[in-house]
């Protein structure tokens, strides 16, 4: 099952990646190259098999560890915003958001 140029632009939009026309073409060819090695995987019968989302659950049941409800973080806004592209009054600035 090969991808079409429309698939590539749809995915690029979902991923918020601007692709120049020549990039689009190369990407299409590379993705199809990749998906050709994926086909063998799709053919395998995996009915009844539990997905292994986190590796250690192959060893035993893994249970999510929970934090106690305590405030442990202090304000360090200046430090956190050291690498921010655009800040004013402690707010991150972005182009007008239209809802």
């Amino acid at each position: 099952m090969a991808l079409s140029p429309t698939d590539v632009s749809r995915i690029a939009h979902l991923a918020r990646l601007e692709l120049q026309p020549e990039e689009q073409a190369a990407m299409l060819q590379q993705l199809n190259g990749f998906f050709s090695i994926v086909e063998q995987m799709r053919a395998v019968d995996t009915s009844g098999v539990e997905p292994l989302y986190t590796p250690l659950s192959a060893l035993s049941e893994v249970q999510l560890r929970l934090r106690e409800d305590r405030v442990t973080e202090q304000d360090q806004r200046a430090l956190n915003q050291r690498s921010a592209p655009a800040v004013e009054d402690g707010l991150f600035l972005v182009p007008q958001v239209i809802e």
Binding site: F34, M41, P51, L52
Partner: peptide, 24 residues
């Protein structure tokens, strides 16, 4: 691009879920 595609609507089961089952 690959990751976005395999998680996108209609492809999840065929790719991501299948891969995680094979991982098991």
């Amino acid at each position: 691009m690959i990751g976005t595609y395999v998680l996108s609507h209609g492809y999840y089961d065929a790719y991501y879920l299948q891969a995680q089952k094979l991982r098991r």
